[in-house]
């Protein structure tokens, strides 16, 4: 009875740590996260199957894969909110798979995550959303928390008049930014991003990419990012991992992914191979552009674009 075990653990709460030997090896090689043989299935559907991965300290790793290939499940497993069937996950000295809930909370003090659907609290404003983790952990004074949150929001292009709006009144792109802010506001050493720019138009996508690039350069954090946008992955990552049928079939620097011989990776990147030179050519022609942005002042009402987004 998994559920009973879980409850029992909650009451007993023996902490579980990474085995000495593994920890030593991880420290030597500069590995922050080690995943071995991770397996998860839902009913008859095996989503992750014997997945192995090492994530180095301070690197930016993009996980690419089709939708429903298990990217989100993998990321949630790292954060300890999805419970894989078997395997090992070590984050620094914590043994995530066997840690009792109390230890998980301690471990999570060292990481933050941006959820695919944003997971913003609908009942409070954008600013309160962003300052929430700071306020809850009470590491800084409430005033300081608000200042930091506001500063971060401004830095991602949300002007102070947007700060007190409820998330549902913001456009899709703005909600993504608020979610991003909430993930970075505490400057954790490990940040997990789940599809930070999925579903946005190309220009907004580019804006978020630039933002992530800035985050990557400014903080010396380890970033793990799920995405299905090849272009983003090429732009941002130190390494790219491709998930297929529950395994990582290819992992390496962007260059080596582009020239991979693996048939699936080839299929996945074919479209980009065809069009990447063209995109870069367009960008080149624009590189020297200096002029005014054209705006007819409709941004305030943009939120309605979201609610009427379908038909």
């Amino acid at each position: 009875m998994g559920f009973l075990d879980q409850i029992a653990k909650q009451f007993r709460g023996e902490y579980a740590y990474t085995p000495e030997l593994v920890l030593k090896e991880m420290r030597e090689k500069g590995i922050k996260i080690r995943v071995r043989g991770l397996t998860k299935s839902f009913g008859g559907l095996t989503v992750l199957k014997d997945l192995d991965l090492d994530v180095y300290d301070g690197e930016t790793l993009c996980m690419l894969g089709e939708s429903a290939s298990g990217k989100t499940v993998f990321l949630k497993s790292l954060a300890g909110i999805e419970h894989p069937d078997s395997g090992e996950i070590y984050i620094d000295e914590h043994d995530v798979m066997n840690a009792p809930p109390r230890q998980l909370y301690e471990m999570r003090l060292g990481l933050s995550m941006q959820f695919q659907q944003g997971a913003l609290f609908e009942s409070v404003s954008a600013l309160e959303n962003v300052q929430w983790p700071l306020v809850m952990h009470a590491t800084v004074s409430p005033q300081e928390a608000e200042d930091r949150a506001a500063k971060d929001l401004v830095s991602v292009g949300l002007t102070p008049d947007m700060h007190w709006k409820l998330p549902s009144l913001l456009s899709g792109g703005m909600q993504k930014r608020v979610a991003l802010c909430r993930a970075i506001v505490e400057r954790k050493a490990l940040i997990l991003f789940d599809e930070p720019n999925a579903g946005l138009d190309p220009i907004k996508c580019a804006a978020i990419d630039n933002l992530l690039l800035r985050i990557k350069k400014q903080f010396k954090a380890t970033l793990i990012m799920n995405t299905s946008e090849l272009f983003t992955a090429y732009n941002l990552s130190d390494r790219i991992g491709i998930i297929y049928r529950g395994k990582i079939v290819e992992i390496g620097e962007p260059g080596s992914i582009k020239s991979s011989k693996h048939p699936y990776v080839d299929e996945f990147t074919r479209k980009s191979k065809e069009f990447l030179p063209q995109i870069l050519a367009y960008q080149e022609e624009l590189a020297s552009w200096e002029g005014e942005k054209v705006d007819d002042g409709r941004r305030d009402s943009e939120h309605l674009g979201k609610t009427t987004g379908g038909f």
């Binding site: 220009i203 804006a207 063209q278 367009y282 624009l286 005014e292 054209v294 941004r299």
Partner: peptide, 16 residues
Amino acid sequence: LKQFFGRTEDGPMIGV
């Protein structure tokens, strides 16, 4: 059009 097809923020279209 170039900005849109080139997926970049440098250009007359608004990103936010």
